[in-house]
Design a protein around this nucleic acid. Structure first.
Lengths: 339, 339
DNA sequence: ATGAAAGCGCTAACAC
DNA sequence: GTGTTAGCGCTTTCAT
């Protein structure tokens, strides 16, 4: 497969009959090269289709005009965020590179630290960390976190009002008449997940309904685990009439699990998700969910990062965007009591 | 912002009181290091949180275990493909890096050649080109194209049956009774777009309906341009009763344009898209569209690429997946003639 | 078992 | 105006 071994700056220099330094100067538009030589070198470059190696370049320079986005996996939430980031970067002169840890459970914890170590200082001028597990990173280049790990952080951060969103969802279910409302939580290390659970507990407490521990299960944001947890919830002794899932993927999985158990959604079971990813509408029935402005979060995070890279001041280092409830067809009043 | 300047192999060596060569050997598990030194070096590495620079490493080595996916922009189609690619890569030992050209219109043409030149041989072991404009790339590393530029290519390719899909869509509209069916085409350089237009023309011809050139407009897959083209179509002398758009984004834009012009979809105008990206269901009304198995295309492309990188044989170098029509609510019989 | 040194492709001082 | 040289962080002979 190694057909063309790669044309280097040396090849160009040789072919043009000049030194590599001259070629480099031409490439970078530096002074100190005659118009004639420059033109000639340009011609040769075009002829052989030469492009400087990003790797070699960024080993030398320390500015690359590339922004890295580090995601644990490419799933609906993160890809939605990418679209926003792509927006935020338009006409900024920066390019976007996305690194996916590939969702591998092993060596998951701390992936962002490893990637950052491997990349920063070279290859990227700054990074956006999406749902990072670790935030005490103090590397060479600026970093912005989106929906980070629990605990306060020094890092500039973009997130959304998870507490409010969760409360809205549960209050809505309570308003429909539900009393046995279960929660399927997500990755326990994320602050957002903690807040969503807090919102659930607060809303339940405000309604005077005790949350017994059999009502809360960890789905981990991951399809298999969430499916198992959902089945546990739905086949329990005294099953819930509604499930609030910590994200849309878990909610969709819950709807599927319900169908497999012969439960009709929303007649027998109401399900509410969180995120409002495009997939939530593909769900049958379309999912009632809490919207967080994922696209905007991605856009804001890149704008912040670009400011940081340029050394400009950032107005607010921690931005929290609003959430709101989107009612669709996966929720309804609970079934009439048979007992 | 340059807090910690980056800890290099030299720092580790110094701190451990050994040479860089020894540290390198420890990192890469090479022979020729006493157990004691190895352990000590490991300890220091952990202590200072050292991670080898990907850039420096790949400048030396030529194997990186990283696959690059090159996309023109991060929009619904490409992000959907990324999810599939992420699937295809699981448990393969490879990592995924996505490069987005950022959708910049300038220097758009040929971006894939430039990126490939800048990256291959270093940093990535192979690449997936998504909707590339150029396919005569013969670089060091293996390449797989997804939905490439027009014209046959030597490159291993994954695409879908665009001709059939388009015919299905237009035949469906004809079956509903539509006669004035317009087409909003996409990026003219893509073979898939050409085939979708061919399908449209074939179906129209088979029904004995001439396609006058005022019925065909170029939307370019890009929201602004598509909106303009859609308005042109809908405000023409003798406007169409149905629009077949070459992708979902253009179709959604058409629905919006129709609404702004006071046209009801589907009562006054039917719209059919292509792709079946998740966003097509978010459209109001939900979009009738042609499904291509984007996720699977991404998965297949990565599997193919991994085989190529490993030097294994690839059964079929050109895979074409099936397409099918998904009927939703943006299409209906044409309005009764008023004249 | 360990280290010195060369070199991957490139850029930036500093000669000439 | 142009070339020589050093060095970015790393791996790999090849001495020792």
């Amino acid at each position: 497969m190694e057909l063309t071994p790669r044309v280097t700056i040396r090849d160009v220099a040789q072919r043009a009959g000049v030194s590599v330094a001259t070629v480099s100067k031409v490439i970078n538009g530096r002074y100190g090269v005659s118009a004639a030589t420059a033109a000639h070198v340009q011609a040769v470059i075009r002829q052989v289709g030469y492009e400087a190696s990003l790797v070699a370049q960024s080993l030398r320079n320390h500015r690359t005009n590339v922004i890295g986005i580090l995601v644990a996996d490419l799933e609906p939430f993160s890809t939605e965020l990418l679209k926003g980031a792509a927006d935020g970067i338009r006409d900024s002169g920066f390019e976007l590179v996305v690194y996916s840890a590939g969702g591998r459970a092993t060596d998951h914890e701390g992936w962002e630290r490893r990637y950052l170590s491997r990349l920063s200082g070279t290859l990227i001028d700054g990074a956006i960390l999406v749902t990072p597990t670790v935030v005490d990173v103090s590397h060479g280049s600026p970093v912005v976190a989106v929906d980070p790990h629990a605990g306060s952080t020094e890092l500039p951060t973009v997130d959304s009002d998870n507490l409010k969103g969760a409360r809205l969802a549960v209050e809505y279910l309570l308003g429909l008449g539900h009393r046995r409302i279960a929660m399927l939580t997500g990755r326990p290390d994320l602050q957002s997940v903690q807040l969503r659970e807090d919102g659930y507990r607060q809303a339940m407490a405000a309604a005077g309904i005790p949350v017994t521990e059999d009502l809360v299960r960890v789905g981990g944001f991951e399809a298999d685990q969430a499916a198992r947890a959902a089945r546990e919830l739905l086949t329990a002794e005294d099953p819930p009439t509604a499930v609030f899932a910590a994200n849309d993927v878990s909610a969709i999985v819950t709807v599927t699990a319900a169908a497999q158990l012969g439960l009709r959604v929303p007649a027998d079971l109401s399900v509410v998700g969180f995120d409002n990813v495009p997939e939530s509408v593909l769900c049958v029935p379309p999912l009632t969910t809490v919207e967080q402005p994922i696209h905007e979060m991605g856009r804001l995070a890149t704008r912040m990062l670009i400011k940081l890279i340029r050394g400009e001041p950032v107005d607010r280092p921690h931005v929290t965007l609003d959430t709101k409830l989107i009612v669709r067809q996966s929720s309804a009043a609970p079934p009439a009591r048979s007992n």
